[in-house]
Amino acid sequence: MTTAETVPDHLHARLVRDAEAQGLLDVAYRTLDSPYGPLLLAATPRGLVRVAFAAEGHDRVLADLAARLSPRVLAAPGRLDAAARELDEYLAGRRRAFDLPLDLALARGAFRREVLDRLPAIAYGTTRTYAEVARDAGRPAAVRAVGTACATNPLPLVVPCHRVVRTGGGLGDYLGGTGAKRALLAMESA
């Protein structure tokens, strides 16, 4: 028995098509090359549910999606065409806002969800501090919780947690690395 065999492409594509037609494609995913390394994109039927940098470990992220959403996970690029196109345009500096259905099912806790819901209101090319976001969300003391919400953002880039920085000019941590955060902010303010 050889072990290097793979399923023929036409059979995989047919499985994806049939699964989608019968409502069995709970999580579709693909990867996308970017200036910050390969990105994993995943979507439920409701919308884009996950964007992950390579640093998070794509296999680990897929295992987490299987555990927390559904194990019916398939590599199915079709559902992610629009998301991949908009991310490409954004990363090339040709798009300032995303127009995609989002599924925030992976946001844990009402406050983190509230923070994530507010982030798209931070305009392209501008930043807010963690403290300001906490105040905007009506909990000025919850600065640390805002940091956690950003650090666990399931949709980085699309939900712009990179626009939230420290009071006093520090960048703050970023899922994609501080270098990526600095580069994104530089691109947006160019």
Partner: peptide, 17 residues
């Protein structure tokens, strides 16, 4: 439970045989 994609990759060729 592993993602179904991994099941397809690991066992698909064998089942096809």
């Amino acid at each position: 439970m592993v993602p179904f994609e991994q099941v397809v990759r690991e066992h698909g060729p064998h089942v096809l045989r």
